[in-house]
């Protein structure tokens, strides 16, 4: 049974197909389903990346995601929202994050999906440690992510 909002912070991988099926199951009012999936890429700031370690703040992370989704729900006509974020050790090419949004209309689904990702990037307590050819280091936050989130205000 799919509830309207699903939030999961997990070490296990997820199936985009299964998540889309849940968003669509018995859902006859929403003509639009927009999904985003973020993956570990092999290069960052000129370095060869081998993988990532992701840490979070149990409890606060879920509350923060819930708040971001509520904000999106107050701005657009969206019905079902799924946010999955993985933590722990991840290799290049692995899935990190999934955001899926359903709506009667595509504009609302596109906008809400981007809004949720933009605020997840700057407000949800997750931290990435990068493992590259040069060793491991915690990533610095990017001002471009802050700028992107500010555009919604």
């Amino acid at each position: 049974m799919q509830t309207d909002i699903k939030i999961s912070v997990q070490t296990e991988d997820f199936s985009q197909a299964e998540e889309v099926a849940l968003l669509e199951q018995s859902n006859h009012s929403d003509g639009a389903v927009v999904t985003f999936c973020g993956r570990v890429r092999n290069r960052n700031l000129g370095e060869n990346i081998q993988g990532l370690f992701l840490e979070h703040y149990p409890g606060m992370t879920e509350k923060s995601l819930s708040k971001i989704i509520e904000q999106a729900k107050s701005k657009w006509q969206i019905n079902r929202v799924t946010v999955i974020h993985r933590v722990g050790q991840l290799s290049v090419g692995e899935q990190i994050v999934f955001v899926g949004v359903t709506s009667p209309h595509r504009h609302d689904a596109f906008a809400a999906n981007e809004f949720i990702m933009d605020f997840l990037k700057v407000n949800a307590p997750f931290w990435k440690k990068e493992l590259s050819d040069n060793g491991e280091k915690w990533l610095d936050a990017r001002s471009s992510d802050q700028d992107k989130a500010k555009q919604w205000q």
Binding site: G38, L54, H56, Y57, M60, H85, I96, V97, M117, L120, K121, V122, N123, A124, P125, F126, W127, K128, W138, L139, D140, A141
Partner: peptide, 10 residues
Amino acid sequence: VAFFPPVTGG
């Protein structure tokens, strides 16, 4: 009370 660096998820 929690203290942490700027977040870098997603």
